[in-house]
Amino acid sequence: MNNTIRVGVVNADADITAGRKLVLESTGRITLVLDEQKPEDLLDKFENYLIDVLLVDQRLRGMSGVELCERLTKIKIEQGVETRLLVTAAFGSPRLTFDALVAGANAVVTQDQGPKALIETLVSLNSRKQQQNFEELKKLVSNLDIDAKEDPVVQVLLESFDEFEKKLFAEIVSGNSIASVSAANEVAGYRIRKIMQRAMDQLKLATLEQLQLRLIQSGEDLGKN
């Protein structure tokens, strides 16, 4: 099995991309398979490239990185593309992190965090590890003073679960892995995956972070069973 991570970069600046390429390819595990400067060109090619992680710079021509993530997420949901989206920026802020995660990005790395952080996050994303836990996301929402707002779609979803399903759903949303929830509750993993898939389809979401933020914003208390 080939361990190479296939990476794409969309960045308006060729020099920044060149620098990133040197950093990433120096690891020997990462290959840059797609390099685009224009977001429109990337949207055309996105579903055809088997990219593991796509680095989306926040500063692009014609749209922001967050806007591009929104459009890519739609493609991901419609076409079942599993590419992980990593937003990069010169400077970070809680608002950027929030907006990027809501738009469907899996993580945000800023230049001041250094190249090591970029490589580590990229490798981590490739192995499907979640970058922010539920409590961190709650804190992020709280720091941004975003008020909870009733979300009827979330309410309908939660009402469609029986008590046991709701318990499994709550454990996954709070950051536990499917394997650990499956073992703890003596339930088959496919059943948990099915519950989560149902939730993602109903809410039209692509990432667990999106689901977590949606639940936090809805103010729903999943409770602890």
Binding site: I16, G19, A90, Q111
Partner: peptide, 14 residues
């Protein structure tokens, strides 16, 4: 400046 930093980082690694 970001490009300079990025290239410098790349050069260091490469």
């Amino acid at each position: 400046i970001s490009a300079v930093v990025s290239l410098a980082e790349g050069a260091k690694f490469a």
